[in-house]
Amino acid sequence: MMSDSNNVHLEDLCSVIRSKNAGPFLITLDIIFRDSSSYYAIKDNNLITKGTISEVYNISESEVVVLEHIDSLHAIKATLKRHYPSGSPGDTDVYGMNQEGPLLQLTFPLSIFD
């Protein structure tokens, strides 16, 4: 999906969007922005919250156990409960390293940079 003239994709604001296990029962999402203006545009407009994460992943908000804004890194971290323990039957991503996909759907109006 391309960004149109009024919207920008999260992907286009970030140098890192990744997922990984944080132990066998949690998956953590790291979103690191390219610059402070992008980071603060998202943070100050409250555009990535536990609610946003639960919506894009189609899960309940209680499954998002951590949501941190880390100013010094221009980063947002969200940690999710796993549905299956890492590498136990039912799990399909043992290291949790391919769970970032739904975040890439997020788009924001360019007006947040005004």
């Binding site: 944080a22 953590t28 790291d30 690191i32 941190e68 880390i70 890194l73 971290k77």
Partner: peptide
């Protein structure tokens, strides 16, 4: 950036 890696909280 590495202080985020594979950790529940930074």
């Amino acid at each position: 950036a590495h202080s985020l890696y594979e950790r529940e909280s930074h």
